[in-house]
């Protein structure tokens, strides 16, 4: 058994930290803001305002739901176009008022349903890449489970991306990768290894800025996240918006 597929299993495990726990421990005064301001309110994305070390921030997270009914509504944490538009709306509002944006991602990818296509899934992701990337406020993403393809990238195109020790980030699920390239979904362990989707490998490749240590206790885990975020926000807020945007541009230009 290789390490990569172990990481994939842990990233998908039901014991891992949830978006509710992140809100509860990191943002106790979180106030949720609903809707994309145009068409609907995707429950797979939860966003709102909270105070973090005394300063207001906008927190946006993908959400899987805690029971079957909720999970069905949230498409098991796979956002619809409306969800990406809500994230962009809240991020723009955040930049307008000079608040940092904190994004938390755990999604297998953008929802590939008929209705999502109808309402412009591709266009919604593209708009996030185009506009989120230009907002002059610190934008930090934490991947706390699965980081699946364009659906994750649309929420990870800011200044910095951190990953929990047991999380993954890849262009495609190892199963999908194996079935497309080898017509054999059973070779997923081999695919996981080849894809280089583990936090350590991604850190080495410069895709992410850091790996947050694992803690069994959810409250302790949130303290670990807290430590990284507060330190990074301070660092990024010291930069002028020109410096911030130039740095962000360079972050992706190097690939």
């Amino acid at each position: 058994m290789n390490q990569a597929i172990e990481t994939v299993r842990a990233a998908r495990s039901s014991n891992k930290i949830t978006d509710q726990e992140i809100r509860e421990y990191l943002f106790p005064d979180f106030f949720e803001l609903h809707g994309d301001g145009a068409y609907g309110d995707d429950p797979a994305i939860v966003g709102g305002i909270a105070t973090f070390h005394g300063q207001p921030v906008t927190a946006i997270m993908t959400s899987r739901g805690k029971n079957l009914e909720e999970r069905m509504k949230k498409h098991f944490g796979q956002p619809s176009p409306s969800g990406y538009r809500k994230a962009l709306r809240l991020a723009k509002q955040s930049a307008h008022f000079g608040r940092p944006v904190l994004l938390f991602v755990d999604t297998a990818g953008a929802y590939p349903g008929k209705k999502a296509e109808r309402y412009g899934q591709g266009q919604a992701i593209a708009r996030n890449l185009l506009e989120l990337g230009q907002l002059p406020t610190p934008i930090i993403t934490v991947i706390y489970g699965e980081g699946g393809s364009g659906g994750a990238l649309a929420l990870a195109c800011g200044d910095e991306v951190f990953m929990l020790k047991y999380s993954m980030y890849s262009v495609l699920s190892p199963e999908g990768f194996a079935s497309i390239l080898w017509k054999d979904a059973g070779r997923s362990a081999e695919a996981a290894e080849l894809l280089g989707l583990t936090p350590d490998k991604l850190l080495e490749d410069g895709v992410v800025e850091g790996v947050i240590p694992f803690a069994q206790d959810k409250q302790v885990q949130c303290r670990e996240i807290d430590q990284v975020l507060s330190q990074e926000i301070k660092k990024l807020q010291a930069l002028s918006s020109e410096e911030l945007l130039a740095r962000r541009h360079e972050r992706f230009r190097k690939f």
Partner: peptide
């Protein structure tokens, strides 16, 4: 779509080109 054989490096192109479009 993304070129699977290049993994995450292919994914990063989406953001890289989008930044160039923004410029």
């Amino acid at each position: 779509g993304a070129r699977m054989q290049e993994g995450i490096f292919s994914l990063m192109q989406m953001a890289k080109v989008s930044n160039a479009v923004a410029q």
